[in-house]
Amino acid sequence: MQGLIVSATDHKAILGKLSAAFSELPPQLAQAAKAVLDAPEEVAMHSMRRFAARFGIAPTTMIRLAKLAGFDSYDDFRKPFQEALRGGGGFADRAEWLQSLAASGDVGAVVGGMAEASLSNVEAAFRGADARTIASAADTLLRARKVHVVGIGGLYGFATYFAYVTRMMLPDVHLASPAMGSVVDELAGLTARDALLVLSIAPYARETVRTADLAVERRAAVIGVTDSLASPLAQRASHLLVVPAASPQFFPSQTALVAMLETLVAAVVSRGDRSLVSRIKAVDRFREQQGIYWRNSKSEAKLT
């Protein structure tokens, strides 16, 4: 048997070899390898054909990947993942996993605490999320003449991310950056036909509240993404999305905030029309033509 030489139960070794060889794989095999790396539990749970269909991969490509990895068949390739799922090796119960982290020393306790906070925040955000509010916020973004995105201080990077992604599908998205020391200065043209998406996590920035107040005064729609119903945005937002930010470290966790922003983006896509899809395709095509994306030109190679 050539290719990867791994034990029958060591799915982690398979993942490690796939990761190490990923940059050398041709496009189709790279797509299959990425699917396995991103969702190893689904390899265990689903048949080859179902797994392949789930990720848009030809079944024959999965067979090629299995052979490249050193297995005679896809079923043999799948067995280590099934053993891991049955035995908890790599897909362990959440509580057991967190306890093991906390017991592994000072750094382990830190990692365990962060993992617990991040998972709990995301779970709480989605448990408390109202699908109708998310849908309404998405519709507001779709209808807006112009979308302004505001994030002060540490939240500026997340605002940049949201603005970058939504520019691919909405005609006019503006990331508000401080001008002359004030974000408010950039919103002078805000009208009732516009929407303001504003991020705010305690301790709440005074400039954030001023921005929301201006939007309310101008009768623009305000989509507030914040950490509490006690936030100053709670009374100012026409659409309120609450994202817990508890953290054992000195700075609030932003994990749930990112998850909610991505959910809002997904909602915009799902509720948009064909013109939105066409715009995304056009932007992607332009980037492709300009050589923005890195492409692997190396030929197919065996994993070693």
Rank of each mutant, 00 (worst) to 15 (best):
R271V: 13
W97Q: 05
H46C: 10
D93C: 05
A163N: 00
T304G: 15
I63A: 10
R132D: 15
D130L: 10
A103Q: 15
F286C: 09
H46Q: 13
A179D: 09
A69F: 14
R127F: 11
A192E: 14
Y293R: 05
R50K: 13
P27M: 06
V173K: 02
S100M: 09
Y164S: 08
G113W: 12
T226M: 04
V243L: 07
L199K: 08
G224V: 02
R219S: 12
R210T: 12
I57T: 08
G224H: 00
F158I: 02
F77I: 07
K79L: 15
L98Y: 04
S200C: 06
P26T: 09
D213G: 01
M168A: 14
A195S: 10
S73Y: 10
V6G: 03
A84L: 14
H11W: 07
R127I: 05
R50L: 14
G151Y: 05
D75P: 00
P171R: 08
L187R: 04
S299C: 14
E186I: 11
V110S: 08
V36W: 01
I134T: 08
K298D: 03
A221P: 00
R132E: 15
L85I: 12
L240E: 10
L142K: 04
D213S: 04
P232H: 07
V243I: 10
Y156R: 04
D213Y: 03
A115G: 05
P26L: 09
I134E: 06
A129C: 13
Q28I: 05
M1Y: 06
V269E: 14
Y161A: 13
R78L: 10
A129R: 13
A135D: 15
M260H: 06
D284P: 00
A137N: 04
T140H: 01
V150K: 08
E24F: 14
A144R: 02
L98V: 06
A266Q: 12
A117W: 10
W97N: 04
A259V: 09
T60A: 15
I201Q: 03
L68M: 12
H239A: 14
V6W: 11
D10P: 03
A192P: 00
P232R: 00
L29N: 07
L199M: 01
F81Q: 02
R193N: 09
L141T: 02
F77R: 01
A115Y: 11
K146D: 07
A246H: 05
I14C: 07
A159N: 05
M1T: 06
L264T: 05
E262M: 08
L214G: 03
S23C: 13
D185F: 15
L233A: 01
T166R: 02
Q290D: 09
A246S: 10
Q289G: 12
V222D: 00
L197F: 00
G181I: 13
A125G: 05
E24N: 12
G16E: 14
R295E: 15
